[in-house]
Computed example of a mutant assay.
Amino acid sequence: MAITKNGGYLTLKIHLLNGRLFNRLLSNDGRALYNAEQGKIVSALWDKRPQTASELAQVTGLANSTLTLMLKRLEEEQGLIVSVQDEIDKRKKWFDLTQTGIEQEEVGNQVSDKLSSIFYAGFEDKEIEQLEGYLERILNNLETAMAEIPREDSTK
């Protein structure tokens, strides 16, 4: 009997459901001032601040057009971030958290902990360790392939 290799499909479904559930948990919490997609940006800034839009795009994986809209909302409508023009390179902007954005980290951590308890329900510590080891290997395989396989020239 042939082994089915559904890891990519399962990972895609897990990613989709994980994001939807994270959004539900955030909105049900009532304290969160951002959604899951915006959470990628504020989380990146919790880890390292300030950052440029290019750095945030790299860390979050968001497309520039999506990132630009989200940054604008996070700053102008939600008051979670602030932007400052670079003093040397006027084309560059730096993004940082406001005090409100900093305070949202506690909410984000608590919601993430809830999601993790759902994600790993029924798993023993050893199983979690094994699973994460396998996922790290898959991630490494994919990152290696991205570095080795050139992007097709779209100007052809």
Results as ranks from 00 to 15, higher is better:
residue 82 V to Q: 13
residue 69 L to T: 15
residue 75 E to G: 08
residue 81 I to E: 00
residue 88 I to D: 03
residue 67 L to W: 09
residue 42 V to A: 06
residue 67 L to D: 02
residue 84 V to W: 02
residue 76 E to S: 11
residue 53 A to D: 13
residue 76 E to G: 07
residue 55 E to Y: 04
residue 67 L to Y: 10
residue 86 D to R: 09
residue 76 E to A: 11
residue 78 Q to F: 14
residue 48 K to Q: 08
residue 52 T to Y: 09
residue 67 L to I: 08
residue 55 E to K: 09
residue 77 E to R: 14
residue 60 T to Y: 05
residue 74 L to V: 05
residue 48 K to M: 05
residue 83 S to Y: 02
residue 57 A to C: 14
residue 77 E to P: 04
residue 49 R to Q: 03
residue 77 E to C: 06
residue 81 I to N: 01
residue 76 E to I: 06
residue 87 E to S: 15
residue 71 L to C: 12
residue 89 D to G: 03
residue 42 V to H: 01
residue 62 L to C: 11
residue 81 I to C: 04
residue 65 S to L: 15
residue 56 L to S: 08
residue 89 D to E: 14
residue 48 K to V: 04
residue 47 D to G: 02
residue 54 S to C: 03
residue 45 L to D: 02
residue 65 S to V: 14
residue 88 I to S: 12
residue 49 R to I: 04
residue 88 I to P: 02
residue 84 V to N: 05
residue 42 V to W: 05
residue 60 T to N: 09
residue 67 L to H: 13
residue 73 R to C: 02
residue 61 G to K: 02
residue 51 Q to F: 04
residue 72 K to G: 00
residue 87 E to L: 15
residue 57 A to T: 10
residue 64 N to G: 04
residue 53 A to N: 07
residue 84 V to M: 11
residue 49 R to H: 06
residue 62 L to G: 08
residue 57 A to H: 12
residue 66 T to C: 13
residue 74 L to T: 01
residue 72 K to A: 06
residue 44 A to F: 06
residue 71 L to G: 09
residue 45 L to R: 01
residue 43 S to T: 07
residue 43 S to L: 01
residue 56 L to F: 11
residue 43 S to W: 07
residue 85 Q to G: 06
residue 51 Q to H: 05
residue 60 T to Q: 05
residue 47 D to I: 05
residue 78 Q to Y: 14
residue 76 E to L: 12
residue 45 L to Q: 00
residue 89 D to S: 10
residue 46 W to R: 05
residue 46 W to P: 00
residue 74 L to F: 10
residue 51 Q to W: 07
residue 63 A to H: 15
residue 56 L to I: 15
residue 75 E to V: 05
residue 75 E to F: 07
residue 47 D to Q: 06
residue 44 A to N: 05
residue 58 Q to W: 06
residue 70 M to D: 09
residue 52 T to V: 11
residue 56 L to K: 10
residue 73 R to V: 03
residue 55 E to H: 00
residue 81 I to P: 03
residue 61 G to M: 02
residue 43 S to C: 05
residue 56 L to Q: 10
residue 88 I to A: 11
residue 85 Q to C: 05
residue 81 I to S: 04
residue 55 E to T: 03
residue 51 Q to N: 03
residue 42 V to T: 12
